[in-house]
Amino acid sequence: MTVTAPPVVIETPPAIATPVRAGAGSKVLAWVIMLAGVLYFFAPLVATGERAFRAIGRTFSFEAFRRVITDPEFLRTFGESVINAVATIVVSLLVIVPTAYWVTLKVPKLRSIIEFITLLPFVIPAVVLVFGLIRMYSRPPLAILGSYGSTRIILICAYAALSFPYMYRSVDNGLRAINVRTLTEAAQSLGATWPTIVWRVIFPNLRVALLSGALLTFAIVIGELTVALYLGQHTFGPFMSNLVRNFVAEPAALTILSFAMTWGAMGFISYLTRRQPGKRRMRRRP
């Protein structure tokens, strides 16, 4: 007996007009735009890297980085700029945090005016600012630009002013994210004084905002050229500028280092931002 397998019938699906996939074109366009963006941002970086990593002929090496890092001026100027940046962050925090807190709590109507004032460094070019400072502080009664040290104080104050747009925005966003008034009143009703409220209630809840502002300020100060140059300060900005004028591979290496530092700072901010306040588990009390 022969068993024949039943014929396999392949049913042809009814002809359906293929619908035009909505968004398919826009998807391609999105990819094109993204690729163009990637090229726009990364091509110069790749070219700079190429220059930095091939300082000796066509051989891949870290020679340019070695030369930069072992240059005694690099460490000296970088160290000086780091100290300037830290001092700027402290001054900026001391001015901006109490101001933003007070405006949010007591005079919210002034917020737009304060915002405008903090935005002035975007409008006034650094060169105008520095000439203003020189005119102001080089003649009596405020002639304090006599020594390198005193001029450095002016430099830090100028940097603090330049950091205001970033610092104020960061702090203000942080304050908007928490209910400042109610938290303040709750702490007051529990017996807290103003310094206690700021230190133990407001500051810890602004941690991410303050770090963002601080890191942005750091990034601005570390490579700032105009103000430092005109005030005769031997900081990292003028060092980089000098390097660009006299060498080829070293400035490229320095650029790569700056990028790495900036990206590192941004990554750190992003990491902290993901960690909401209070998510950190504390040690269980016995």
Partner: peptide
């Protein structure tokens, strides 16, 4: 004087 608020007002950074 102890105060309880509509929005709770617990300190987010504290347990």
């Amino acid at each position: 004087v102890g105060m309880v608020f509509q929005s709770y007002a617990l300190f987010p950074n504290m347990t």
